[in-house]
């Protein structure tokens, strides 16, 4: 019983991080209809940014969160303006290939700079943990959980309480409709891409605190973000939370009962089945694939 409880808490912590991590992926997919295969590499880019700032400036990765977000935001604007805008009207799979090329490029650039060794951000609280009744709470995991929760809530507020957020949601639902009420989809695409990439890099800070990373871990993270996005349905914060928790439970429990080696396999098989059986996700939501 205690084991299950412990696993559930771990799932909750990890799942909440996955929810935040995937928000950017889900948002750009829902609003721009772009499946960004380089998304995982953006996260890893964030992790290396936080790593570098920590090594050279002694900046705690929590404190460098705003920097990562801003850097990501600018990068998102840049990619949207000079790459994505040119390919948005092509066959969707061309965009897949383009972003995969981008993924290979980023991973290899990081590899050139940092080499393929596993890096980790050694914060002073890395090893601390506390007993809470029958539970063992690792400080790092709890911290990432709380931060992910706060940041996810911020994204929710951004989408629901600001005019920009309302405009983003309007464009996601109906591009031409949004245009008729004076919202420029092109501008919203830029902003969404910025926010999405910002989220990716910021979540990289948290990922770097949570575990070690190499330049080539991006692909796996992209798959996770993808799974989170399709389980819940696209482009909504609530959906990402549902998907994130689902992935958290799936990973923690398969990791514990079947072995670490089966974790990624389980995610992939579930993703495969979801795509075949319920491409709209559990909660419904937007689905572009048919048109």
């Amino acid at each position: 019983m205690d084991t299950v409880l412990q696993l559930l808490v771990e799932s909750l912590f990890l799942g909440t991080f996955y929810a935040f991590m995937s928000l950017g992926f889900s948002l750009t997919w829902g609003v721009l209809n772009i499946i960004n295969l380089a998304y995982g590499s953006y996260i890893i880019l964030g992790a290396y940014l936080a790593y570098t700032l920590h090594i050279y400036l002694g900046l705690d990765p929590v404190l460098s969160l705003p920097l990562s977000f801003t850097g990501g935001f600018l990068l998102g604007l840049f990619f949207q303006r000079f790459l994505m805008n040119r390919v948005m009207n092509l066959e969707p799979f061309m965009v897949l290939i383009l972003t995969f090329g981008l993924d290979i490029f980023i991973a290899n650039a990081l590899n050139l700079i940092f080499r393929a060794d596993i890096r980790s951000i050694d914060v002073p609280y890395a090893e601390r943990s506390h007993l809470l009744g029958p539970l063992i709470i690792t400080e790092v995991k709890a911290l990432v959980f709380v931060l992910s929760l706060i940041l996810t809530a911020l994204v929710y507020l951004l989408l629901h309480r600001t005019w920009t957020g309302r405009a983003i949601r309007a464009v996601a639902l109906d591009r031409e409709g949004a245009r008729t009420v004076g919202v420029s989809p092109e501008k919203i695409f830029l902003i969404t891409s910025g926010i999405g990439t910002g989220i990716a890099l910021a979540s990289g800070n948290l990922y770097g605190v949570l575990q070690g990373f190499t330049p080539f871990d991006g692909g796996m993270l992209t798959v996770k973000a993808f799974l989170v996005s399709i389980v819940g349905g696209l482009g909504r914060v609530e959906s990402a939370v549902a998907g994130g928790l689902f992935l958290g439970v799936l990973e923690v429990f398969t990791g514990f009962y079947l072995g670490e080696g089966w974790k990624f396999f389980a995610s992939l098989i579930v993703m495969f089945l979801f795509l075949i059986l319920r491409p709209r996700g559990l909660l419904g939501g937007k689905y572009y694939g048919e048109t």
Binding site: L83, R86, V87, L90, M94, V95, I97, L98, F100, G101, L102, D103, I104, F105, I106, A107, N108
Partner: peptide
């Protein structure tokens, strides 16, 4: 290779 892929799609 990554760069080549991006360029070709463009």
């Amino acid at each position: 290779l990554g760069l080549l892929i991006v360029l070709i799609v463009l």
